[in-house]
């Protein structure tokens, strides 16, 4: 999966909660943050931890996609 494909998948998952641009702030409630993380986990076969649920990674779609790409590279 290319970085662009990861971005496109993360965008689709995120748009289930908030239809925002890739660089717009993701203004989710705490329960929605958890649900989005779970959707990402299921889609990409990843295990996220509490340390992954931070604004640096969940602040925008683009940052989340970059983090997912990094995790796919390093945690599989």
């Amino acid at each position: 999966m290319t970085p662009d494909e990861v971005l496109s998948e993360v965008r689709a998952l995120t748009h289930e909660f908030a239809e925002v641009g890739d660089d717009d702030p993701l203004d989710l409630e705490s329960l929605e943050v958890v649900q989005l993380a779970e959707a990402v986990e299921a889609r990409f076969g990843l295990v996220l931890s509490g340390r992954d649920l931070v604004p640096e990674y969940f602040g925008t779609i683009r940052r989340l996609a970059a983090h997912v790409a990094y995790l796919r590279e390093h945690r599989r």
Binding site: H15, E19, A39
Partner: peptide
């Protein structure tokens, strides 16, 4: 996409399908 948008407006987070 329109249905998803409408679902977000109509359903609270806990009752909204994640997929």
């Amino acid at each position: 996409a329109d249905v998803r948008r409408a679902a977000r407006a109509a359903l609270p987070a806990a009752r909204r399908p994640a997929r």
